[in-house]
Write a protein that binds this DNA or RNA. Structure first.
Lengths: 203, 203
DNA sequence: GTCTATAGTCTGATAGAC
DNA sequence: GTCTATCAGACTATAGAC
């Protein structure tokens, strides 16, 4: 958590500026495709100054990824076993749509990482994420067994939610080029996705 | 089309080997993140030899992208206005699943390009692809108006098909890490996706 | 056609003045 | 803390021997 690191107020502020700039750059070009120069320009600082606040380009990237993972996993964790099955899953879809709206760069940073084979977050995926996904998959299976939602493979259901919601952040460039109006694609998408999952989940 | 370029049999063969290797490398690390050294190693050739067959790293990447776009657009083009609406769309989903199965690297190459803002294929997307998508969107709207399928936004329907099918190629690394068995994720996915779209399209 | 050697450029990181 | 200057290594691309 970069907010809790020691340092003066100006130090913490500059670290935040650099992280924000680096997120913009890394999310577009990936780790290898990004340069410290680009990050510095985006942050409005000199290259040596960026490397004064972080030990290395790698350290900036690692900080971003680590900060991201907690945020990334939260919406799934919030699914409540005590709630109404259909409403809980639809609320999860809404939270994921909101994430694509509020954190498109974070979504692309994550996508870039997975596209590359997830070398830096393999531990997170096989550990924390897998434990949580397995737990929620058991919950969804139990809900299906009780007949309250359609009986479908819980893993493919979760993958479908990820695919559909993250697509609007990750493939944003393509979607905007294919649309005539300049309205936010996600506004129409939310209603579409909720309708889709309502139909899919109906017993 | 690289197959139609002039040259001896061995020249065409080496060009194919290089393109195959470059596809593997570019699809994982993006253009900037890939090196000619990596491509040469993957192809089993020396670095200068690779640059004997292609003018530059950029030229290899451009050849790959150009070759890809035709393949990429074909499944959508095949949707037949004269066919049964639901069956035509489900057949399209099947073709897209097959693409993720047969051409996962091509899918990731495309994803990498879009993530970066689609700088190299903006013309293709705004031109050829948009024309085709608009045409098929009108067709789907007409089908919905006739009451033969559920009335939904045709653009979001198409985006949903892209998101769900390509996810299994692009996020393959994550999906495999989250599964216990070593069966092909796409085998179960195809049945799941067909069920999903059958429910979504039902009038 | 394929190699070794290398030119020229870019990039990550550091030194040292202020 | 921030800058200019710069080094060391990696990278694309080419020259030239064979």
């Amino acid at each position: 958590m970069s907010e809790m690191l020691p340092g003066t107020r100006i130090q913490r502020k500059n670290r935040r500026i650099i992280l924000r700039a680096a997120l913009e750059v890394f999310s577009r070009h990936g780790f290898r495709g990004s340069t410290v120069d680009q990050i510095a320009a985006e942050a409005g600082l000199s290259k040596p100054n960026v490397l004064y606040y972080f030990d290395s380009k790698e350290a900036i990237h690692e900080t971003l990824l680590t900060d991201l993972l907690g945020t990334w996993i939260a919406p799934l964790r919030e699914i409540d076993p005590a709630g109404d099955p259909q409403e809980e899953i639809l609320a999860y879809v809404r939270r994921k749509v909101q994430m694509s709206r509020d954190f498109p760069c974070e979504s692309r940073l994550f996508a870039n990482e997975i596209l590359q084979g997830a070398p830096r977050i393999e531990g997170f995926i096989r550990g924390e994420l897998k434990t949580l996904v397995d737990e929620k998959a058991r919950l969804i299976r139990a809900w299906a067994a009780s007949g309250r939602i359609n009986d479908l493979d819980p893993y493919h259901l979760i993958f479908s939610i990820w695919a559909l919601t993250q697509h609007y952040a990750d493939f944003d460039a393509q979607i905007r080029m294919l649309r005539d109006d300049d309205s936010e694609p996600l506004d129409g998408a939310e209603a579409h996705l909720l309708m889709l999952f309502r139909r899919l989940l109906a017993p």
